[in-house]
């Protein structure tokens, strides 16, 4: 008899919702409160919740640490890459206006979304990585004691 049955069932239901909410926060970022950082934390929270309920091993199978590490980099690259793209299009670093040559305002939208996406990826993966790092330590207490 698993002591955490209820938790498992509820969280299985909640986790996708949390992840979805993270993306809502992300894409709504340039209209309302929110943005990549918050979204990244929320997304990471969903994975961390998964790890808490189903164990680190399971979580690591679902989201492998090597994958997390690569994601960290990819996030930074998305952020930096946006800047590089604006460079290549002839603007200053991170001057999104040049992304759309018809309407700079559109370009601003695209740019900020790309940037926020990079932030999201990095923050989420870093959060998870930190969690993995702490979680992977040998516990001082056995499972029964708490």
């Amino acid at each position: 008899m698993n002591p955490h049955l209820l938790l498992r069932v509820v969280s299985k239901f909640l986790i996708p919702l949390i992840a979805l909410y993270a993306f809502y926060v992300q894409f709504h970022g340039d209209f309302g409160p929110g943005g990549g950082f918050q979204a990244g934390v929320i997304l990471a929270a969903s994975i961390i919740l998964y790890a808490l309920i189903f164990g680190l091993k399971e979580a690591k199978r679902a989201v492998p640490p090597s994958f997390v590490r690569i994601l960290m980099t990819i996030g930074v690259l998305v952020y930096g890459g946006t800047g590089v793209v604006t460079w290549l299009l002839g603007g200053e670093f991170l001057n999104y206006g040049v992304l759309n040559h018809h309407d700079p305002a559109h370009g601003q939208h695209w740019g900020i979304l790309a940037i926020e996406l990079g932030v999201l990826i990095t923050v989420a993966s870093v959060m998870v990585a930190i969690f993995y790092a702490f979680g992977s330590r040998q516990p001082d207490l056995s499972d029964e004691d708490w």
């Binding site: 590490r69 930074v76 590089v84």
Partner: peptide, 17 residues
């Protein structure tokens, strides 16, 4: 001026993996 900072930053991220 920006190039000077951005390049090592991005390269650092790449180097990590």
């Amino acid at each position: 001026a920006a190039f000077l900072v951005v390049v090592p930053l991005i390269a650092g991220a790449i180097a990590a993996i």
